[in-house]
Design a protein around this nucleic acid. Structure first.
Lengths: 208, 208
DNA sequence: GTTTGTGAAACGATTCACAGCT
DNA sequence: AGCTGTGAATCGTTTCACAAAC
């Protein structure tokens, strides 16, 4: 299972399609056309078909796609056939929201450790998990590797934490700190930057 | 102030540049080159110059950009010269994290109302603001219009809330619900979808 | 010598349009 | 007849490369 050159935008849409299919499945729908999927996913039918074509051929001409089969195929493509271990660095409000969101575990992500630099927070139990001091980070990740690390620290310390994680072999990072992280090419980083989203909205409000 | 055809990706980078410049300002730096800004912002110097060129000419050849002047220009371009009124629909964990984040107010965003459908949450005081029942939404937004609405509800009810907001004249929406919202062209929507970010990471982990 | 601003070239993504299967 | 899968065409974005400004 290895092809290169799949565009980021394609992968994001696959994830979106999967979410739509889960909705259709819940509604008891058996098959969908690329047209219906596109309408729900906010794109075009040609885009849907092209996106899927990078990975194979999942539909029946004249009929469409089996909802069950296509969602199963997408889960496979996205690597959702297994569980992932997630460590969270930073026990603030957003970290808290992450940890306590139950949909997370349901979707295959297990939060296995939470760290913070604030000694007052260390020892608190969060959803059954003890907040540990960041100084334990290296030892903890060596004992119990994480597949994904979520960075929920202030911007100033984010890069330092990332460097430690990368040195420990972490290959996937979700960054909530408002800084652009520098990592080697073989490490995947995604950014969630609320200030940026708000600013694209204010731009739109003033330029339309 | 009206030019069209500015790419979304350009606007996002402008916001990023502004964040970098704020860092440089805090370090007491007076001028930066497109090279330095690009390095910090995770892009290339040509990209920085091209992005800025859509809005004017802000640098001095041979010298670079005045940190102060460029950040001021970017704030103007992004529409950050005024404050924005934000209403939040959904008083769950993420709504809570939003409301309580102090950087928000500092950046020019005032949260002016919070709504929830759960009568048990209604009446709670959040950061000095009373949680109101969603049935009050229409009246509240008529009395005190919001510039931006953040949707932090379950997916199933998100579209209904958006339709009400759009009918009330809201032109900018930040959506945290994991559904693709349908809105008229003159309404700007940005999506923050954690499941999607996690799934692009699992894809990356399995395809490199 | 350095760095900007910008047309032109290269690249990448989306859309078109239709042959081919059901 | 209906809908997929896909090469070809179109469209948009990024990168190149250099003249102009300091």
């Amino acid at each position: 299972m290895t092809m290169r050159k799949i565009a980021e935008s394609t992968v994001r849409r696959l994830s979106l399609y999967l979410r739509c299919l889960e909705g259709f499945e819940a509604q008891g729908l058996e098959t969908v056309s690329s047209d219906v999927l596109a309408a729900r996913g906010g794109t075009t039918s040609a885009q849907v078909r092209k996106d899927l074509s990078f990975f194979g051929s999942f539909g029946k001409r004249g009929l469409g796609y089996s909802v069950r089969e296509l969602s199963s195929a997408l889960r496979g493509i996205l690597g959702l056939g297994r569980r992932y271990r997630v460590a969270v660095i930073g026990a603030g409000k957003i970290g808290s929201a992450l940890v306590q969101y139950p949909g997370f575990r349901q979707r295959g992500f297990d939060i296995v450790a939470i760290f913070d630099a604030d000694t007052r927070k260390v020892g608190e139990a969060w959803d059954g998990l003890r907040v540990r001091h960041v100084r334990e980070l290296d030892q903890a990740l060596r004992d119990q590797p994480a597949d994904i690390v979520a960075i929920v620290t202030p911007g100033e310390v984010a890069q330092g934490m990332v460097d430690r994680c990368v040195a420990l072999g972490v290959k996937a990072i979700l960054n909530f700190a408002p800084v652009q992280l520098q990592v080697p090419d073989d490490v995947a980083v995604k950014h969630v930057n609320l200030a940026l989203e708000f600013e694209t909205l204010t731009f739109a409000l003033n330029n339309r």
